[in-house]
């Protein structure tokens, strides 16, 4: 399927990656090439086949619903680009 620049722009927006307008045609072309490759999957008869959810037939490990970790705000914030007064700081969100 050919991807147009409008679709490429929409995908970039959904992915929260800024793409300059002049880059969109090349991006759309790359998407088209990759999706063209992926489209081979349409040749496969998948009727009655369940989508795989787990590659090994095992039940996910469960643990007791108790607090196992926490109370270390300094460690959590240590790598933040902007942390203030025990919080992550971001630009104003609410108008």
């Amino acid at each position: 399927m050919a991807i147009d620049t409008q679709t490429a722009a929409r995908v970039a927006k959904l992915a929260r990656i800024k793409v300059e307008d002049d880059q969109l045609p090349a991006l759309a072309e790359e998407f088209s090439a990759i999706l063209g490759f992926i489209e081979q999957l349409n040749e496969v008869d998948v009727d009655g086949v369940e989508p795989m959810t787990s590659v090994t037939p095992m039940r996910l490990y469960r643990r007791d619903d108790v607090v196992t970790d926490g109370d270390q705000p300094d460690a959590v914030l240590k790598n933040a680009p902007d942390a203030r007064e025990g919080f992550f700081a971001v630009p104003k969100v609410v108008e």
């Binding site: 992926i38 999957l41 496969v44 998948v46 086949v49 369940e50 989508p51 795989m52 959810t53 590659v55």
Partner: peptide
């Protein structure tokens, strides 16, 4: 795309 690929994955396994 995604669900079809996961079905094909089941067939590969």
């Amino acid at each position: 795309y995604y669900n079809r690929a996961r079905r094909v994955r089941a067939l590969i396994k």
